[in-house]
């Protein structure tokens, strides 16, 4: 798989974050879609496979950990990056157990997220 073909799903209840990330990763050549509702995002994922998911942890409807479980259930290969403003060690450990690829604490620089995405893409292309 080449990075240009990789599909990225962004879930954050703050619309601006989805919009900004979509814009940023679009410019890097990824095909990105963003959702403010995790349930809508999962429905989209069921229809079309995503390689990479960036999700907030605290959201209405479905929390990030549950989102992570369902994403992994849909696609074992998908890399999931969790972004949160409410870090605590238990959640981070739980996310890691559930197979999260990376855990970023807000505020973070866009560059840090880009680095994680590149790393994930590298692993996907090797797999």
């Amino acid at each position: 798989m080449t990075p240009a073909a990789a599909r990225l799903l962004i879930i954050d209840d703050e619309p601006i974050i989805g919009k900004r990330l979509k814009q940023a990763f679009g410019k890097l050549g990824l095909e990105a879609a963003s959702f403010t509702s995790p349930l809508d995002a999962l429905r989209a994922m069921a229809e079309q496979p995503f390689d990479l998911v960036i999700t907030d942890l605290k959201m209405e409807g479905l929390d990030g950990l549950e989102t992570l479980r369902r994403v992994r259930a849909l696609n074992r290969r998908a890399k999931v990056i969790i972004i949160t403003g409410y870090p605590d060690p238990e959640t981070a450990q739980a996310a890691s157990r559930e197979g999260a690829f990376a855990f970023l604490v807000k505020p973070f620089r866009l560059e840090e997220l880009k680095a994680e995405v590149s790393r994930a893409l590298a692993e996907l292309s090797q797999a």
Partner: peptide, 13 residues
Amino acid sequence: EKLSGDYIFDRRY
């Protein structure tokens, strides 16, 4: 620095 728009942050921060 967060005003630059280079950061992703939220209310808790």
